[in-house]
Design a protein around this nucleic acid. Structure first.
Length: 463
RNA sequence: GGCGGCGUGGCCGAGUGGUUUAGGCAGGGGCCUGCAAAGCCCCGUACGGCGGUUCGAUUCCGCCCGCCGCCUCCA
């Protein structure tokens, strides 16, 4: 059984399922007002691997991730660029999907947009007011946090210390500085929806409660996002559910930041690298490998150097696929690997992989096992134990597939006429033991950007 | 001020009270190869500092130093 760190308890504990065999997951998505960066990418990869692994373990997964398509940042950008909010949101939502697809991330089963749920959000806010948990001011409707049992569960702080530390601007109308907005009353020029509290728009924290409960139902299994969402976003989502008397997420997962030097990557520091930038300089699989080489909760740094490092490690994985001609690709496109694939993994390697993954998604440990198997496959191959070697190599391929990395047995690059001719000439020279000529041709091929290797079948080229 | 995390060999990054090593990348030696490349084998004897607990601590406790995050929109 998968054991995961749970932010609510601060411990690693089994992920208990509401319905045996079925896992329901909600991950907070993005506010679509700018290009996604590699910090967002890390988050997608973490959840992607979680989903793939659960599938591999024979569970049915329902994964929901929302699109926040109305919020302050979108309004600001639209105003600055003289466009409509929906235009801005649509542009960056498209960019989000493009980046996520490029990373090989499976699309969510549902990706609800906030604007499609406003009616339900209004109803939820009205219910909170009716139940006495929310109150209206001249600027909006607020949740009275002091009335909520256990507020501060995820922040791991008492209400008193949260109040003491509150740095929010003083709003005399709010009953407590910690109270948060559920409904923002309309300001001139902003998009608005009708509500019993007047025209306005929903607060950020309300959409995720409404959408997660609507799509996954009460008491769904797992809710997560980046560490920053722990507080206040997730705390506030939970507060609303508690106030409504509804069972909310049973387990909370939060992943660590991507750092740039000593600082976290963020929009305000202007130090972010977009997913597109990253993919321009490294294989998406190398980026994935780099992310998975660290535990999901730790902070990581992604630099050109560490990307190149991961690229070389990836090259070794592909090298295994080349040697053992692992052409039977694993389909990572739309389908995660199912449990049936476990049968293709040799038992010791499967056991080692599972024990690491079950231990709070210890992908570094899982990868250590994979690379260990890789070395042994080569060693067995060197000793002529072809069948055993192939079985191990296939195990490596399948387990990489579970992590969303597909190995390449050969480069897709077609040989141009000139290179093909040089290969033929070189093989001819070598067969005649004309090594001066064969080396000269190798130099020419190298100059053309090829990596030249001699194998049983003669000269082979790759990039 | 409150809460939390981290400091491991050249770099990245796991882990553990002592007996066998995480793993990757880079580096050195060897094997293989016409020479290479790829691959295999071997190697560095690492755990921020000071105390304490212990027969024994990198691994537990305390203190100190350094770094980071959250407490505000943020993945």
């Amino acid at each position: 059984m998968l054991r995961l760190h749970d932010t609510a308890t601060g411990t690693v504990r089994p992920l208990e399922l509401r319905d045996p065999g079925h896992v329901s997951i909600y991950a907070c998505g993005l506010t679509v007002y700018d290009l996604p960066h590699i910090g967002h990418g890390r988050g997608w990869l973490v959840f992607d691997v979680l989903r793939r692994y659960l599938r591999f373990r024979g569970l049915e997964v329902r994964y929901v991730s929302n699109v926040t398509d109305i919020d302050d940042q979108i309004i600001e950008r639209a105003a600055a660029e003289g466009r409509s909010e929906s235009e801005v949101a649509r542009q960056f939502e498209d960019a989000w999907w493009e980046a996520s697809d490029a990373l090989g991330v499976l699309r969510p089963d549902d990706a609800p947009r906030a604007t499609e749920y406003v009616e339900q959000m209004v109803a939820l806010v009205a219910e909170l007011v009716e139940r006495g948990f929310a109150y209206e001011t001249s600027t909006g409707v607020y949740l009275s946090v002091e009335k909520v049992d256990g507020y501060g569960l995820l922040a791991h702080q008492s209400l008193a210390s949260l109040k003491a530390g509150a740095r929010v601007e003083i709003d005399a109308e709010k009953r407590s500085p910690v109270d948060f907005v559920l409904w923002k009353k309309a300001k001139p020029g902003e998009p608005t929806w009708e509500s019993p509290f007047g025209p306005g728009r929903p607060g950020w924290h309300t959409e995720c409660v409404v959408m997660s409960l609507d799509l996954l139902g009460e008491g769904f299994d797992l809710h997560g996002g980046g560490v920053d969402l722990m507080f206040p976003h997730h705390e506030n989502e939970r507060a609303q559910a508690v106030a409504l008397g509804r069972k909310f997420a049973q387990h909370w997962i939060h992943y660590g930041w991507v750092m740039v030097g000593a600082d976290k990557m963020s929009k305000s520091l202007h130090n972010f690298v977009t997913v597109a930038d990253q993919l321009a300089r490294s294989d998406p699989r190398a980026y994935r490998l780099l992310v998975l080489r660290s535990q999901y909760r730790s902070q990581i740094e992604i630099t050109p150097e560490t990307s190149a490092d991961a690229g070389r490690a990836l090259e070794r994985l592909d090298g295994l696929a080349r040697r053992f001609e692992l052409h039977q690709a694993v389909d990572l496109q739309r389908e995660a690997l199912g449990a049936d694939m476990a049968a293709e993994v040799t038992p010791p390697e499967l056991e080692r992989f599972v024990s690491h993954m079950d231990d709070d998604l210890d992908t570094p440990g899982a990868l250590a096992g994979i690379f260990d198997a890789l070395s042994r496959a080569h060693a067995l191959g060197d000793r002529g134990k072809t069948d055993e070697a192939r079985a191990l190599a296939r195990s490596v391929q399948v387990l990489c597939g579970v992590l969303g990395i597909s190995l390449r047995a050969r480069d897709e690059l077609p040989l141009d006429a000139q290179s093909a001719r040089l290969v033929a000439e070189r093989d001819d020279a070598r067969s005649r033991h004309d090594y001066a000529r064969s080396d000269a041709i190798r130099d020419r091929l190298t100059a053309l950007g090829w990596i030249v290797e001699d194998g049983p079948a003669g000269t082979t080229l790759r990039r």
